[in-house]
Amino acid sequence: MAEITIDKACCKGCNICLTACPKKIFVKSKKRNNYGTAMPDVKDPENCVGCRMCERLCPDGAIDVKGDRNQ
């Protein structure tokens, strides 16, 4: 199972990851990042297919995917 982490020091809450993930793993949450805006939460990480689009499309390097099928 992939281990997906979102760094709240890096996340600026742009929500690009919400649409970037083909499996819609990222969902809106009430968690706040260091800037006080809402940051996404990870739901059902077992659905991750390891495409890494979230890593590539996160403009702030906040997302790290470990242990997916490519690793």
Partner: peptide, 20 residues
């Protein structure tokens, strides 16, 4: 960090593509 880019700015995506 953080970068001075606004939330959702495309620069961060290009920054990551280049380091890849």
């Amino acid at each position: 960090l953080p970068t001075l880019f606004c939330p959702g700015c495309g620069n961060g995506i290009i920054q990551y593509a280049a380091i890849e």
